[in-house]
Amino acid sequence: MKTQIRLSGTGGQGIIKIAVILADAALYDGFNAVQSQAYGPESRGGASKGEVVISDTEIFYPKVELPDIVLCLSQEACDKYAYDIRSGGILLIDSQHCSVDMEKLQGVNIYASPIISTAKTVIGNPLCVNTVALGTLVSLTNTVSKDAVLMAMEDNFKTKILPLNIQAYEEGRKLCMKLLQENKRRAKAMERLKRRPSK
């Protein structure tokens, strides 16, 4: 089993950081993991991409060939990195900063959530965008276990900023719960519509 994950956004959002945490968490879960990246020469701004391949066998080609899971936190990232996702894959985007062409994403499970504004308003720190997104993504996809992610976060954040990031991660999980509840409600509504006798 091979899972190919692509995380993308703007340089400075901490995309590569959460790619590292995800790969580290996969190692804690006993998988093989490879993390690679592509970024421009600028330290902030520009599209940034982190890729993680998780597998129970040896990984040769370290890059994502056909993504199963894609995260986009900026419009530029959406335009560049969202559309080659496999059918049946999961796409998570920021609901206020990204829009996608649904026509071109037939068969893809698309989730839109206010990740960036949650970091700003609920956590009060826009730097936590990445860990909020990580929380939403991990609970949405279950690629790695929650325990593994927490251990990986402990390894990759300084003690001073770890609690804040764990809080952000939890907020991200809550966003996922909301998404799933909404989906359930929508599915039920659809069901009711179907059951209603046609006139």
């Binding site: 790969a23 190692l27 993991a33 490879v34 993390q35 690679s36 370290p62």
Partner: peptide, 9 residues
């Protein structure tokens, strides 16, 4: 660059 920046177990 790929090997230099690649992270793996």
């Amino acid at each position: 660059e790929k090997i230099g920046h690649l992270r793996e177990g």
